[in-house]
């Protein structure tokens, strides 16, 4: 048995404190899942303007977080709070993993397929929520996706010969795929049109609701990305969109990919999709077609 230790906390991405608590906790627990581990204990990390904001808001955040900790089968063992003008919440999580089966973003091999388990676009959607320019049904879909643990995907993938895994968060799919390519010393081919997206999110990109971080991701990755000119630039922006509590990006042998995908869909990870493959050894290049 080996222990893995992670920490993640974020500023609010949605308006409802209970939803924010669930999302921030799912986001923090995700790091353990991406390593192939199982969360054991968690500690709250809280920054809150206790003098100017109603304590009920804080209680709601913590209630949402605790719900996710319990759903993960972990135990809340403590935490720490500081007074701050901007609310922040997250967890430090300790997890268990078999020492020979720790997954990292290094290890992807030529011939692997790449599976992404959640739709892309939470950065754009969070911006649209701030702007008040989002349909309530889409907002709900995005909140539920962000609040969903990567537990199911993690539990299913350990039955396969997974070579590498990472969770897709702030650097966007593009940034995390690039990190995987560099760490694994391979080249990755992504099919932009196969990437799962939230409904109506392309329209929101056209409206100019892209967060600065997503543009920064896109520009940062640009020199290591070969883009097929037929790819819609809007799709590129969504591949680079900074995600909160995004899905797992899993590299496994191509002949096992369909089987894992079927398993994921059968267990409620319904947006999962095969989005690309490892084309060969290299120094971290991504081709998008």
């Amino acid at each position: 048995m080996a222990l893995v230790q992670t920490l993640d906390f974020i500023t609010p991405v949605v308006n409802d404190p209970y939803d924010f608590g669930r999302i921030a906790a799912a986001n923090a627990l995700s790091d353990v899942y991406a390593m192939g581990g199982r969360p054991l204990t968690a500690m709250n990390i809280v920054c809150f303007p206790i003098r100017s904001m109603d304590k009920a808001v804080l209680r709601e955040i913590l209630r949402g977080g605790l719900e996710k900790i319990h759903e993960a089968g972990a135990v809340l063992v403590g935490g720490h709070s500081v007074e701050d003008s901007e609310t922040k919440y997250g967890l430090s999580v300790t997890g268990l993993v078999h020492p020979d089966r720790v997954l990292t973003n290094a290890g992807a091999r030529p011939g692997d397929a790449l599976i992404l388990t959640k739709p892309l676009g939470t950065g754009v959607l969070a911006t649209a929520i701030k702007a008040g320019l989002i349909a309530p049904s889409v907002e709900r879909t995005a909140i539920e996706s962000m609040a969903t643990l990567n537990r199911k995907a993690a539990e299913l993938m350990v039955s396969y010969s997974v070579h590498a895994c990472t969770d897709v968060t702030g650097f966007g799919l593009l940034g995390h795929a690039l990190e995987m390519a560099v760490a694994s010393k391979v080249c990755i081919a992504l099919k932009a049109e196969d990437a799962p997206l939230f409904p109506s999110v392309q329209d929101l990109v056209h409206m100019g609701l892209v967060p600065a971080g997503s543009y920064a991701n896109r520009n940062y990755c640009a020199h290591q990305v070969h883009l097929d000119p037929v790819v819609d630039p809007v799709l590129l922006d969504l591949l680079a969109d900074a995600q909160t509590s995004g899905g797992l990006l899993i590299a496994l042998p191509e002949d096992q990919a369909e089987s894992l995908l079927g398993d994921l869909k059968a267990h409620g990870v319904s947006d999962a999709a095969i989005i690309g493959r490892i084309t060969g050894p290299g120094d971290g290049l991504i081709q998008i077609s």
Binding site: V205, H206, M207, G208, L209, V210, P211, A212, Y215, A216
Partner: peptide, 13 residues
Amino acid sequence: PAANENVSRFLGR
């Protein structure tokens, strides 16, 4: 630059 790109897109739209 982000605001530039976003406002340009919005007006284009």
